[in-house]
């Protein structure tokens, strides 16, 4: 077996152990509620401006780019439903998750990596404070809860961007735009897309924490942990998305 393959299997095994420890620690008292809410604020609320800008641009650009093609077939009126379906089912969840992988996974990787290198994690350990419970469980839970909320927000902002994009060349009232959009969006469009965002959030948290928590000693490892967290989290988003699409296709 090549060392590269061996490394992949080793890493997969270690991440699995890391995840199993998460579930073990999750149900053990005491729950660090204050740290969890602090992380929700830091990871969720502070990402809102970024999601607002990217969500708006996604909706706007998608509408402007799709309009000429639909116009050729005289299907311009389908634009609101097409844009909203694309955003809700695929674009908003994946783009939001990728942005969060860049911002949140790297942030967690760097933060925990620097805590590891400066022995702050060891300091918690010797003070009989479970660093896994305090640092890892709270962050993974926060990303798992916050990413779906951010995706819903991105859906809304993207649809709003789509409305503005539509009205650059066309003329449609906001109530008509939203009623057309709501008519086309079904429960089964929202449900699978929402489920996968929980997995996106979970893996963004897991990978960020795993890379940071296992940073080897030395300041260079902080940068490496942050970088590897972004790469691995982004890759995991595409893999989860591919699996989610296959499963959705099979059952719905």
């Amino acid at each position: 077996m090549t060392p590269y393959l061996k490394n992949i299997f080793e890493e997969t095994g270690n991440i699995s152990l890391f995840i199993s420890r998460f579930f073990k620690e999750l149900f053990k008292p005491v729950f660090q509620f204050r740290e969890f809410t602090r992380q929700c604020f830091a990871l969720g609320y502070k990402t809102l401006p970024l999601i607002t800008i990217t969500g708006f641009i996604m909706g706007l650009v998608l509408t402007i780019q799709s309009r000429p093609t639909l116009l050729k077939f005289g299907a311009e009126s389908w634009l609101p439903s097409m844009v909203s379906l694309s955003l809700i089912r695929e674009i908003a969840p994946v783009i939001t998750a990728l942005i969060c992988a860049g911002k949140i996974a790297s942030g967690i990787g760097a933060e925990l990596g620097s805590m590891k290198v400066t022995e702050q994690i060891d300091a918690m350990e010797v003070s009989a404070i479970n660093p896994y419970k305090y640092l890892v469980v709270t962050r993974i839970l926060a990303t798992t809860c916050m990413i779906p909320i951010l995706v819903f927000y991105a859906d809304f902002i993207g649809i709003l961007g789509g409305y503005i994009g539509y009205n650059i060349h066309g003329d449609m009232s906001i109530s008509l735009y939203f009623s057309e959009m709501l008519e086309s969006v079904k429960y089964l469009d929202i449900f699978p897309a929402t489920i996968k965002t929980f997995f996106f959030g979970f893996f963004i948290g897991v990978i960020g924490c795993y890379k940071g928590f296992n940073a080897s000693n030395g300041t260079a490892s902080v940068g490496i942990a942050a970088n590897e967290a972004v790469v691995a989290a982004s890759l995991s988003i595409f893999i989860i998305d591919m699996l989610a699409v296959q499963i959705t296709d099979l059952f719905f």
């Binding site: 022995e119 702050q120 060891d122 300091a123 010797v126 009989a128 479970n130």
Partner: peptide, 19 residues
């Protein structure tokens, strides 16, 4: 081990204060 660690104070080389 954590029960035992409560009896021990540890001063790290670089302080290791939570920054």
């Amino acid at each position: 081990l954590n029960d035992l660690r409560v009896k021990i104070g540890f001063m790290f080389q670089n302080g290791a204060l939570y920054d």
